[in-house]
Amino acid sequence: MRSILWAVARRVGAGVAVLWAAATAAYAALWLAPGDTIDVLIGDGPDTPEIRAAISAEWGLDRPEIVQYLAYLGRLLQGDLGRSYWLQRDVGEVLASQLRPSVELVLAAAGTGVVLALLIAVLTAGRGPWPRRAASAAELVSVSVPPFVIGILLLTVFSFTLGWFPVSGADGPAALVLPALALGLPIAGVLGQVLRDGLERALEQPFAVTARARGLGERAVVARHALRHALLPAVTYVGWFTGSVLGGAVITEILFGRPGLGQVTMDAVSGKDLPVVMAVVILFAAVFVAISTVVDLAYRIIDPRLRTT
């Protein structure tokens, strides 16, 4: 028990360190950006020394760098992500208002990817060379096609030609189908291959032979015994998985004209609205750290052999 608590504490500590570093990297971006922040804030407005001084005082730019950095970290700890240069609103508020469609897309895509991967693995594992070749071809194509190309193909076939799904927007479940598929298919291809390899290895193990000898059908062997072993190697792909879904979501949202964090991020990048870009980076890093921490700890539950280390 004590070793588990120690492991949890160490893992959470490492996560916090990663978050601090991500926040610092984001802050460094602000510092590296060419041009004066005050110039960006003034934009096309009147430019007098008084206005410059007022803006500088309002945004705290007249303080030393280190004080600004510490103040920034302090605000982050209180959940304050700063203020957008352009929108005249708190960044946290901006992100929160656009969170829902993005979360819907990410969850739907992740679900699609995992379910399809499981189907690919269970239906093709141990079925001879042809299903194996089909699965590895699917994997090769998934790592090679940019997700937005899949999206364009899906749009061409199902929206423009067949008219089954809306071309853009985020109204209702129908508008979610194609974006979720575009984002989920490449993931399913890669994850399916990993799961399939794991299943095939597990099905050759002595415990699978024993289960068959007890008279269990092949389906039951897969479902009750082999799948748990196949999940272990797949768990190491969780970082890649989270990164692909989050990064791919930005492009997918733009392609399908969905409102959400992708649109906010793109507007912020093209408008050089750095506080918003920084906040998105920190938000993504936080999600990533949270997921990988939970998965790392869950790993010990899935695989009892790891608990002793």
């Binding site: 971006a29 950006a33 970082g239 989270t242 990064g247 930005v250 870009v277 993504f284 890093a285």
Partner: peptide, 25 residues
């Protein structure tokens, strides 16, 4: 090694967007 981890943590596309936000397209 820790800084490689942090850099590897951020989705590639997001890191790229951060760079483009600094340097322009």
């Amino acid at each position: 090694a820790r800084s490689f981890d942090v850099l590897g943590t951020l989705p590639e596309l997001l890191l790229a967007l951060l760079v483009v936000a600094i340097t322009g397209p």
